[in-house]
Every structure is written in structure tokens, then in C-alpha cells.
Design a protein around this nucleic acid. Structure first.
Lengths: 357, 357
DNA sequence: CTGAAAGCGCTAACAG
DNA sequence: CTGTTAGCGCTTTCAG
């Protein structure tokens, strides 16, 4: 039987109310009383029961995922994961919302963040690209007592906030390693294409990509990044032009999270079957292409993991707990045709409910 | 404010005790009373508060991970993860133990399982290879009311238990795809080596490997599987012999979870730098080799994920909840030198604790 | 500065 | 078959 506050109170010769004050670092307790209680804690090896505390406090954790207003399949998948996990967590008094409210314009983001109040929400996961204004607004948010995690977009270590997502530099490097490896020592150019370069994320990926390509695959030369700006027609035009100007293109790296339009443009090219193509994220369209051998590999961050990670972090912060770093590592996953379905938790067929004993 | 049992009781015109009986499917309530309560539940959108219930019941979840007695780095890593996660979960009334108690001998496993009693443990994660005896013992365990998940070892879909781990067939296939891809259309033989073939897991990997190698890389021919049986000296001998007999070996697939000894033997060969080498699992030694370019890729199952997945499943089963399949997918991860550190949750530097509001 | 008492949402034991 | 009462471990008034 784990010791309770009652035991503590007896051991320390005080009332449970006092124990509570000490436990929660509330003021108004004599030095020596505090010490008495702390001694008792150490002696009994007391560990507080968080859910009992939350019950008494009627505490509910309210977390918002603030997502870009516009987006494609990847974003949709994230939303689904957020909803699913939110459903799961309701039983544990965690309320999670996915809100598509952020626009490209930093000022709009700032305004949205400014509108957040600590008595509406306990923590937010923000998916927005870097900018000084946003950074400041985020800091102010935090000062108002709202916990923040930088979600998917942005860099780690740069800001004083938890970051959940992959290391984009490493992701680019991984893409280069695969592309180079699969290109069979072929000599030629590599096409790099993205929806837009305007986020630091893309820049990071590009850096990582170039680094590995240059140091490890001298036979390949990457072309300047093409940008589609979400315009399929434009995508087709610039891709066609690239193939015309560089007939020796042997590989393609689609750098953005939303890959559908660029990929479509690439696959219209009549030599696409000879190309080694690498893209990002697991969506319906990329998976389909991978399965049909149109695509060679996908560099992926697992949406379910990032979502759960963000929630765990937010919750830890709310509880004043130090999150366990190792458990929230977001891996850069590589998907080939062979390990797509690698998904494997098979459930019992006979799924009759057995009442708890 | 979420409705409580009190609200339900009022709404249905019964006492809270009756509400409780209905909620938990306990017998001894009139048909129509049950319906009245259920109607109220639907009307109010009632959702039970699990932690309050657990508090009242003083419920503690006790889960054991039953692991092989002998093992190497991979097993050690699993143990660490189990301990870490156990530490984390204590606050949520989940007690987790890692027990190195299983031996090769199925009878010993059966005996160990038979000794388990539902008033000592609520669920177990079993890491043992398939065998009819073990299967029966597991079934009996389950009938005694102990929840079971088949952990890492074993196949999915075969047994009426939850399985947590990667699909070994797909893992083998993935290895072949990478090996073939990286081999640069080279022609030659591929060495396949494992600690031992006696588990179905190895057989599955081999099957998947051969399938892809044969269909996709006709220029490569895989040799019969070599087995080291955990004997480093033997490993060196048979590897040396293989290289002597087949001077055209271009690639190596180390199939077992424990790869240290086989890899050591391989890397003694003077042509090892020209080989493409693929192994399994992220351990200190494999990581080190990957970083030093001695190894080309690692096929990995994330120990942290499998552990958390197993615990989530066990807990869901105990609560009579249907686990959410999607969230417990165990991916076959691919580790290259470039995405090793892909681990990325960076924490705040200034990690001062901010008291909860 | 400290303690007594009531209560969070749910369950358990015992009457009826 | 159903209700009453007490209590899980912790927090929160409100006196003192």
C-alpha cells in the first residue's frame, strides 16, 4: 500500500491541510513544519496520487492544436490523429481541439495567439513558421501561463520552447543518402522541388540534402529548388522546363510536406520510370504512388506519434513535471514499398469484452 | 461541466448505486431500470470518469513483461525502456515490472506462465517463441483472467491475442529492398546470418527477404542461412568459410535481433568495406558501426514504442475498452547514418518549474 | 500559521 | 431489485 497524505500527516504530526500546503509549495507554513513534512515524505517514500489530486481540483487539461488554415493531405491526417487521440484522452480529463486558424501572415498569427487566454486553454501546440513577431507573441503567451509546444514547423534548440517534430536538416540528409544510394552511381542532375521555400523548414531540408549529396555523391549535382506555390499548372510548367534544360536528371527530391502537386507534375514526364524519386510524408496519394513503384521512398514523421508526444509534453509541463526526453523522440522514418504495412498490432479476433475482475 | 453519476441518477430517477450497477454491467437490475439509466446516459452525453472510478476501487494495474533469461544488448535496451516507462506510469497507478524469467525450453515457459495468478498480476507481455505448449499455457492464463499480449516474438493474426511487434516477413523484405538497392546492380551472393533459426521469427524474416530478393534483384543470390548459436568463435569460422567458398559475396544480412557477434565476425573479413551490410535493431554496437560507415542500414523496431504500446493495450483490455488499432502500429523503421539522431524533442533550456496555476 | 470538515466522481457494503 | 452510507486520496474553504 502506497502511503497517502493521511500517513504523512500522522508521521509529521500535522494535519492533512498542512501536508497539502507543503506538497504544493503553497506559502504560509513555518520553516520547521515544512521540514517536518519533507522528512516524513522522504521517510515514507511518499508519492502523490496525481489523479486523486486532479479529481479534487476538478482539473481538466485543455489543449489546442493551432494549425494552418490552408493545407493538404498531410494536414488532414494530422487533424484526424488529433481528433482520435482527443477522443482517447477524454476519459483522462484531457480535452484536445484541432483548430485550423493560422494564416501565412505573421500578424494574423500574432493576433490569434494574443487572443488566447489561460482560462480558456492550458496549453497550445503551434504549427507556424518562424518569425520574430510570432516568436514574441509566443513568449508572451507563455508568460501569461499558457504552455507551448512548437509543433512540426520550426527548429529545435532555437527557442525556449519544447519542439515536437523531426530535425529537418537530418531529414534532408536522409533523403540525399537514399537518393544517392538508389541512383546506382549514375551521373547526372537531381531535381529539387517544393511547394514553397518560405519557411525555414524547407531551407533546413535543402541544407541537409546538399550536404550529403556533395560529400557523399559527387556524381550527382542538385539543381536550384523549384517552387510550385501550390499551383498545379505552374508546377507542370517549371518541371517540364527543368527536364528540357537538363536531360540528364536522374533523381527527384520533393521537399515539402504536401507532395501531391509536385509529384503529379513529375510523373507526367515520360522518363519518370527511370528516375529515383523521394518525397515526404505518408498520405493517401504518396502511399499509393509508393505501392505502384512510382516513388522509391518516403521520409516520414509519424503523425500519431507527434500528436501524442505534443500532448504528453503539454501535460508534463502543466503538472510541473520534467518530461522524459528519450520517450518523446520523433524519429525520421523511412518508408519503402516493403515496410508500408509495417504497421502491426493485430487485435484479437474474438473481441468479446471481459468484465474487469 | 461534464455530467456525473449524480446527474444521471437524478435524470433517471434512481440512486447512484443503481447507476453504478448499470454502468458496470452488474447484474440485479430490472430491465426497465437499466433502460431508464441508459436513456439518461444518452440524453446527457454522460462519460464516466475513469480515474475517479479507479480511485474509489483503489485499482492498481500490475503488468509484467516476461522476457527471456538470456539475451544481449537489444534485450537490455528493452528492459531499460520498460523500467523508464514503469517509472513514468507509477503516477497513474500502473505498476510495471520487467522479469527475465523465460528460458528456451517451452516446458519451462509453460511452468512460469502456470505460476501466474490473477491476484498478483493483471496482465503480462510475453516474449517467447511460438510452440503449441506455450500457446496452450497462454490460453489458460487468459482464461484465468490475466490479459496477455504477445510481445515482439511471434506472429500476428495467428493467435487470439494482441500482438505488439513488427511484421517479420515485411522486415525481411525491407532488408532485401535496401540491400538490393544499395548493391548497385552488382552481381553476386548475399550472406545471411543469424544467431539461431529456431524461432519462427527468423524463418519469417528469411521468407520475406528471399521473396523480395528473388523477385526484384535477380542479380543477387542469397546463400543458406548461417547460424552462430551465440558462439563468437563458431561465428568467425563459418563466416570465414563462407567468404572462402563464395568470393563474390557483395552483401550481408544479419537477421537476428542480437547482431553483435555475427557483425564482429563479418567485419574481420578483409573485404568488408566493399560489402553492403544490413542488420537489425538499434543497440550501442550497431549504432556505433552505422556511424562509422561499417554498416549501411539498420532495420529497427522502436523499443520505447513497443513497450508503451504493450502497456496501452494491456490497460485497454483491463478497462474493457477496445484499443484503437491505428495508434498502436509498430513501424518497421529504417536507420541510416543520416537519421540516427533523428531523435528530436528538444527541451527548453531554461527548465525552471512554473507552478501550475 | 494551522486544523476541521466537506466534497471531487465513483464504488462497496449493507440494509431493506 | 434498490437505496443509504461511508470512503478512495487529495484539495478547499473557513474558522481559529
Amino acid at each position: 500500500m502506497r502511503p497517502t497524505t493521511k500517513d504523512l500527516a500522522r508521521e509529521a504530526g500535522v494535519s492533512r491541510a498542512t501536508v497539502d500546503r507543503v506538497l504544493n509549495g503553497r506559502p504560509g507554513v513555518q520553516e520547521k513544519t515544512v521540514r517536518a513534512v519533507q522528512d516524513a515524505i522522504a521517510r515514507l517514500g511518499f508519492e502523490r496520487n496525481l489523479s486523486a489530486a486532479n479529481l479534487a481540483k476538478r482539473r481538466v487539461y485543455r489543449f489546442d492544436f493551432l494549425l494552418p488554415r490552408e493545407g493538404g493531405e498531410f494536414l488532414a491526417e494530422l487533424e484526424t490523429q488529433i481528433r482520435d487521440h482527443g477522443q482517447q484522452m477524454r476519459a483522462d480529463s484531457v480535452e484536445i481541439r484541432a483548430r485550423r486558424v493560422l494564416e501565412r501572415d505573421p500578424h494574423q498569427v500574432v493576433a490569434t495567439l494574443a487572443a488566447l487566454s489561460p482560462d480558456e486553454v492550458d496549453g497550445v501546440a503551434i504549427m507556424a513558421s518562424e518569425s520574430p513577431q510570432v516568436r514574441d507573441a509566443t513568449l508572451r503567451l507563455n508568460e501569461r501561463g499558457i504552455h507551448v509546444v512548437q509543433f512540426i514547423s520550426g527548429q529545435h534548440g532555437v527557442r525556449p520552447f519544447d519542439f515536437v517534430g523531426i530535425d529537418n536538416h537530418a531529414a534532408g540528409a536522409t533523403a540525399a543518402r537514399l537518393l544517392g544510394g538508389f541512383c546506382n552511381r549514375l551521373q547526372g542532375h537531381v531535381l529539387v522541388i517544393t511547394e514553397s521555400m518560405n519557411s525555414l523548414d524547407s531551407a533546413e531540408r535543402r541544407l541537409g540534402f546538399d550536404h550529403v549529396l556533395n560529400t557523399r555523391f559527387a556524381e550527382l549535382a542538385a539543381l536550384p529548388t523549384l517552387e510550385t506555390h501550390g499551383d498545379p499548372a505552374r508546377a507542370r510548367t517549371i518541371v517540364a522546363a527543368a527536364f528540357r534544360n537538363f536531360p540528364d536528371i536522374v533523381g527527384v527530391y520533393v521537399m515539402s510536406s504536401e507532395a501531391a502537386a509536385p509529384l503529379d507534375a513529375i510523373l507526367r514526364h515520360d522518363r519518370h520510370a527511370q528516375l529515383t524519386i523521394i518525397a515526404h510524408e505518408r498520405t493517401e496519394s504518396t502511399l499509393d504512388l509508393l505501392e505502384r513503384d512510382r516513388l522509391d521512398a518516403l521520409i516520414v514523421q509519424n503523425p500519431g506519434h507527434v500528436v501524442r508526444s505534443a500532448v504528453r509534453l503539454l501535460k508534463s509541463r502543466c503538472d510541473g513535471r520534467q518530461p522524459l526526453a528519450s520517450q518523446d523522440d520523433i524519429r525520421i522514418e523511412i518508408l519503402l514499398k516493403e515496410n508500408i504495412g509495417g504497421a502491426r498490432v493485430r487485435q484479437t479476433l474474438s473481441d468479446r469484452q471481459r468484465p474487469a475482475p
